[in-house]
Amino acid sequence: MYKENTVEDLMRSGHFACPGCGVAIAMRLVLRALGRKTIAVIIPSCASIIAATHPHSALEIPAFHGTFETAAPTAAGISYALKIRGKSDITVVAIAGDGGTFDIGLQSLSGTADRNEHYIYVCLDNEAYMNTGIQASSATPRRAWTITTPAGRSARKKNIMEIMAAHRIPYAATASIGYPQDLMDKVQKAKGIEGTKFLHILTPCATGWRMAENLTVNAAILSVETRIFPLYEVFDGKKYGITYEPQGLPVEEYLKIQGRYRHLDAGQIERMQTETDEEWESLYRHVTDCQRKGAL
């Protein structure tokens, strides 16, 4: 379905990511789908390590490294400058991690979404501050181990998609490195839409999730198939659509390959299953509501 440049790799080898890095795979896919005419705003995150340190760069596109809390407004500023200079064929993409999106960057992200500034925001969610050494963020799921939640996190994972949908931005979608075709389709869809677009991509982290390096993509696939991280998109904050129908595997399949869930007992896994089912049902209600109203 994607149209242009999808075979051109804009990320070179020699980046600084850990072996088996999910963020590196996601960046490669996002840049492939966006093509060469792209300016990236990168903030402190694993993505900034992958883009490498000055004067080196693993990216073949221009990239600006901004402050932690302002990926969104920096991208919006670049977008305005391009507009003034009449360069409408250049895409501006802000690439941030979950800490920079869910936590410290949420205020400025909300501001740009409220004004519907023209850029794509890509959140590469590895579910903790991995770059500083695995500290919990509000994207860390309940019960997951991190160094700042040694007994497992007590709060649930913040639903960033609902927050972004509540801004009624033209396009928001979840994507996974386990489904590259779907991911690149969504990136290209976002590229063709005017206004703020938000992509929430789950990028498993072998280092922080305490799992073998060859399991990154497996974990991504299992997160979708167990309905922990369903693939869906939201148009104008209202029209929900599921882009991949998951098998509905037991969540244990996903949890058992990760060391960060090693401390869970059968009862806790059972509760994780219940919580996942509830979230899925709530999402599915949104979708069926839309279908009933004939919105899609």
């Binding site: 800490g99 501050y129 500083t132 050494g133 500290q135 160094i147 700042t148």
Partner: peptide, 10 residues
Amino acid sequence: PITPQNELTE
């Protein structure tokens, strides 16, 4: 979190 003071938070 910010390096190089993370050990204190941990």
